[in-house]
């Protein structure tokens, strides 16, 4: 039984995804849809972190229910930096790099949820299956958002 391990990994990867979404939001404040949506979508992962922690005790893992904190002072610095470079063409390439990274991370989280769901089905564990059914669809939406943004942004950045 390796449920604890899977939960621990999910807890880590969701925390990581939430943090990455917040960092992208801060770094691309001049791209307003990225800024606002990345923050909204980070909240989904933060809630997943809480949900995972709430159930983990039953599987022998003590996981922190509090998502990793927001960046605080660094946030302000990055936002200012973002505003200053907003009129330079290099920001487009940075955006593509960050969206690509985000997409891959979200894919990783999605794979983790699949592992958990498979295990839960094998063990007929309704609680874990319920958790995966609640969270995994949102991970897929995060993935599709990152992928959609990547496609939408790529042409202008790469041909201009």
């Amino acid at each position: 039984m390796k449920f604890g391990l899977v939960l621990k990994e999910l807890h880590r990867s969701e925390n990581d995804l939430a943090h990455h979404l917040l960092v992208i939001s801060e770094q691309h404040k001049v791209d307003h849809e990225i800024y606002h949506l990345a923050r909204d979508l980070a909240r989904w992962s933060q809630q997943h972190v809480r949900d995972i922690a709430a159930i983990a005790g039953s599987y022998g893992e003590d996981l922190d229910p509090e998502p990793r904190g927001e960046a605080g002072l660094m946030e302000t610095l990055r936002e200012k930096g973002s505003e200053m470079v907003g009129r330079r063409p290099e920001t487009g390439m940075l955006l593509l790099r960050d969206l690509r990274e985000l997409y891959l991370r979200a894919c990783g989280v999605s794979a983790d949820w699949e592992l958990l769901a498979q295990a839960a089905q094998g063990k007929k564990d309704q609680d874990l299956l319920g958790l995966a059914e609640k969270c995994h669809p949102q991970t897929i939406r995060q993935m599709k958002w990152a992928n959609g943004k990547l496609k939408e942004s790529a042409t202008q950045v790469l041909v201009s």
Partner: peptide, 19 residues
């Protein structure tokens, strides 16, 4: 037709970044 049409707020962003 490789991606959705560019809406005006995004056009303003592209004008802002100089593309």
């Amino acid at each position: 037709h490789y991606s959705p049409p560019t809406h005006v707020m995004q056009m303003m962003r592209y004008a802002e970044d100089g593309s």
